[in-house]
Amino acid sequence: ITLVLGGPGSGKGTQSTRLATEFGMAHLSTGELLRQQVASGTELGGQIEGLISRGRLVPDPIVVGVLQAAVKDIVRAGNAGKGILLDGFPRTLAQAKLFEECVGAPRTVVFFDAPPEMLRARLGARGRGDDTEAVIEERLRLHAVETPSVVEFYRQGGVLAGTRAT
């Protein structure tokens, strides 16, 4: 498993798609999986929608449960190829630890580091319905608070690779 981390708008999704294709890996986007839950119209999807629409993080057990099911589906179907690349996860240290308990430790973690001004501009330009100014600011605030401990966790674990956007 390879994890791709970075702030909202840092290019995780774009680059993960390219990396997964180039290296023959299955690609899971945490954001896409959560949006699929919302689109499903289930009670869980409604809970997730309420949180995402306010820029809040979805509770760890829900996110890890959704990811765990998706990883199992890929492995069960024999579609893991040369591995699984997860983008947009984990966002908190608690998620990182819970994921390792439930699924396993990643082989590699890639971190896209970008300044808040760049992220703000990219998010404002992409035109998604949930990218209101208030939601963007909340997402950037959460990223600034939560990401340093996640990055340090993987740096100490010896699996972190990073790149700085300019």
Rank of each mutant, 00 (worst) to 15 (best):
I1M: 15
G6T: 02
G7T: 02
P8M: 03
P8R: 10
S10F: 06
S10V: 02
S10H: 06
K12I: 09
K12R: 13
G13A: 08
Q15N: 09
Q15I: 11
S16K: 08
T17G: 15
T17C: 06
R18C: 03
L19V: 13
A20F: 13
T21L: 11
T21S: 14
F23L: 15
G24K: 06
M25L: 15
M25Y: 11
H27I: 09
L28Y: 14
S29W: 13
S29T: 13
T30M: 09
T30E: 08
E32M: 06
L33V: 14
L33D: 10
L33R: 14
L34K: 12
L34D: 02
L34A: 13
R35P: 12
Q36T: 15
Q37S: 15
V38R: 08
S40I: 02
S40N: 11
S40L: 09
S40R: 11
T42N: 10
L44V: 05
G45I: 00
G45R: 13
G46W: 01
I48F: 12
I48S: 13
E49T: 04
G50Y: 04
S53C: 04
G55P: 13
V58A: 12
P59L: 07
P61I: 02
P61E: 11
I62H: 05
I62E: 02
G65T: 11
V66Q: 01
V66N: 01
V66A: 08
A69P: 03
A70Q: 12
V71E: 07
K72Y: 03
K72R: 14
D73M: 08
I74P: 01
I74F: 04
V75N: 00
N79F: 07
N79C: 10
K82D: 02
G83Y: 02
L85E: 00
L86T: 05
L86H: 06
G88K: 12
F89L: 08
R91S: 03
L93Y: 13
A94D: 11
Q95I: 00
Q95P: 00
L98I: 02
F99I: 00
E100Y: 05
P106C: 06
R107T: 10
V110M: 15
V110K: 12
V110D: 07
F111N: 14
F111S: 12
F111P: 01
F112Q: 08
P116A: 10
P116N: 09
E117K: 13
L119A: 10
A121I: 05
R122M: 09
R122T: 07
G124T: 10
A125V: 01
R126H: 07
G127Q: 12
G129F: 06
G129K: 13
D130Y: 08
T132V: 04
T132G: 03
T132S: 15
T132C: 03
E133R: 10
A134H: 10
E137G: 05
E137F: 06
E138N: 14
R139A: 10
R141H: 13
L142T: 14
T147N: 06
T147G: 04
P148I: 07
P148V: 06
P148D: 04
S149K: 14
V150C: 05
V150S: 06
V151N: 06
V151M: 04
F153K: 01
Y154H: 01
R155C: 03
Q156T: 11
Q156G: 15
G157D: 00
G157Y: 00
G158M: 00
L160M: 09
L160T: 01
A161I: 05
A161C: 12
A161D: 08
T163I: 14
T163E: 14
A165I: 11
T166V: 11
T166A: 14
